[in-house]
């Protein structure tokens, strides 16, 4: 039963992944990514990683997806057809050949690997999930305490960087690249 569910979810993940790549509009691409993340979260749950499944839903489906949708709606990105070329694909010549060959060979490695399937013998000690929150926290706050603190620094640096990127328009952009800036002035730079 759970095995069948895994294969259904795997098919859903891959179908949504293809949707991300082939969608015409960025909005549908991001929604398809959301479906893929939901399927992956269910797979985590089936594999016995409850905490990771919850984190996946909260951080990815909650925060990151909202950020993507927010940017799409902020920039009013509708149809992609206005990009040069049809459908916004740049599959041409050598680059497309390299892309196809890379993806195909990676996929083939996976399919060949599926031939070797050793049976999985579940450990009764982990009947209630592999990432028991107690054990996870014990390891995270002892052995991985330094990376954990470094992660907070990374988040701080990200926050400062994003704020800097978001507000740099008035001071530097107008003067730094006068020749490459688009002619449309939106009043803010002029003022």
């Amino acid at each position: 039963m759970a095995d069948t569910l895994f294969y259904i979810l795997a098919a859903g993940t891959l179908a949504c992944g293809m949707g991300v790549v082939t969608a015409r509009m960025p909005l549908f691409s991001v929604l398809s990514l959301l479906g893929s993340l939901f399927c992956l979260s269910a797979i985590y749950l089936l594999s016995g990683f409850q905490f990771l499944a919850a984190t996946q839903l909260l951080v990815y489906a909650g925060a990151i997806m909202v950020l993507f949708l927010f940017v799409i709606m902020l920039l009013n990105l509708g149809d992609e057809a206005e990009l040069q070329g049809h459908l916004g694909f740049s599959l041409s010549g050598k680059k497309g050949l390299i892309a196809g060959a890379t993806a195909l060979s990676l996929g083939l490695v996976g399919v060949v690997g599926a031939g070797y399937s050793t049976p999985f013998v579940a450990n009764p000690a982990y009947e209630r999930g592999v990432d028991d929150l107690n054990a996870l926290a014990t390891v995270l706050f002892s052995r991985y305490a330094l990376p954990f603190e470094a992660a907070s620094l990374l988040l701080l640096a990200t926050m400062i960087g994003v704020i800097t990127l978001a507000k740099r328009q008035r001071t530097t952009d107008a003067g730094a690249h006068p020749q490459s800036a688009p002619p449309s002035t939106d009043g803010e730079t002029a003022a």
């Binding site: 759970a2 095995d3 569910l5 895994f6 294969y7 795997a10 797979i43 089936l46 594999s47 016995g48 996976g110 399919v111 690997g113 599926a114 031939g115 070797y116 399937s117 050793t118 049976p119 999985f120 579940a122 009947e127």
Partner: peptide
């Protein structure tokens, strides 16, 4: 919990 072989997840 499921009993899918690890290789299939890696695929």
């Amino acid at each position: 919990m499921m009993n899918v072989p690890t290789e299939h997840i890696l695929t």
